[in-house]
């Protein structure tokens, strides 16, 4: 739980992502509003970073900037692998909260997974990769079904499989389990952690759920205020693999949960 301070000017060299003076505004004229300001952080290789904040604080905006879907304001220095970001960086895949509108309803499960790789890989490779990632998320027997035949949780697994098929270095996940019921959510958290351990993928994970953030991540960054800034940054030093029961009884888990809870409510109330 060491306090991590980032130099606000020079980008870190060992970081996958490095953000300095990140700011963004929306709207025109009198309606122009600053959403994020002075956001400085790095994303390191192999870590599981949770971005936590109330809705409307700019979490999704921040993730879309990292994913190259949005351009930040001038003066922002944002680098991926040492190079400035313009457009979606290679090896960075986003997983969206709204799985229903991100899946191609006219394609089968298998062909949805193939979407990102079918142009660059041979047919046999695509088939082999598709099978591998579907097995990984537990959808191996649903390859010929259509998304409409899957439950919400399965559709989100499918979106995850489609991202994994690209063999990403970084997964940017925007409240991926926000629309799911508690039990499905717990299952998917554990599966995501298992997959992350197995593949070594770096994950940036957005959530508004403090417990989820502490449970899944190796580091939590809390965003707050308007415009949104980084309020708090904590390493999560909990034994791995995590367990829905024992981890959540761990003193460190309880302490972090308490600390973050206090910080967020103090900031909201002040």
């Amino acid at each position: 739980m060491s306090e991590i301070t980032v130099d606000p000017v020079t980008p870190a060299t060992d970081a996958i992502f490095s953000c300095r003076n990140l700011a963004i505004e929306f709207g025109h004229g009198a309606h122009r509003r600053r959403i994020l300001q002075d956001v400085n952080f790095d994303v390191h290789q192999g870590e599981f970073l949770a971005l936590l904040g109330t809705s409307g604080v700019g979490k999704t905006t921040l993730l879309r900037i990292l994913g190259g879907l949005l351009a930040p304001s001038e003066g922002t220095q944002i680098h991926f692998d040492g190079a400035p970001i313009d457009g979606p960086p290679r090896g960075v895949i986003m997983v969206f909260q709204d799985y229903a509108s991100s899946l191609l309803t006219w394609r089968t499960v298998g062909r949805n997974v193939a979407l990102g790789i079918e142009n660059s890989l041979s047919k046999a490779e695509v088939a082999q990769r598709t099978r591998e990632v579907l097995d990984m998320v537990g959808l191996g027997d649903r390859i010929d079904d259509y998304p409409a035949q899957l439950s919400g949780g399965m559709q989100q697994r499918l979106q995850l499989a489609r991202a994994l098929a690209m063999r990403p270095r970084v997964l940017l996940m925007d409240e991926p389990f926000g629309a799911l019921d508690a039990m499905t959510k717990a299952n998917l958290q554990d599966e995501l952690l298992r997959i992350q351990r197995r593949t070594g993928t770096t994950v940036v994970f957005i959530t508004h759920d403090i417990e989820e953030a502490v449970y899944v991540s190796s580091r939590v960054i809390v965003l707050s205020g308007s415009p949104g800034r980084i309020l708090l940054e904590r390493d999560v030093d909990l034994p791995s693999p995590r367990n829905q029961v024992t981890t959540k009884e761990h003193p460190e888990y309880l302490r972090l949960r308490h600390e973050i809870y206090d910080a967020v409510s103090d900031h909201v109330n002040s």
């Binding site: 879907l69 986003m94 969206f96 709204d98 990102g116 489609r162």
Partner: peptide
């Protein structure tokens, strides 16, 4: 066309024609 599908195309790095 839903924004989710357009975002999906962008993040999977599909070209304009694709």
């Amino acid at each position: 066309v839903p924004q989710g599908l357009r975002d999906t195309a962008t993040t999977l790095r599909l070209g304009r024609l694709e």
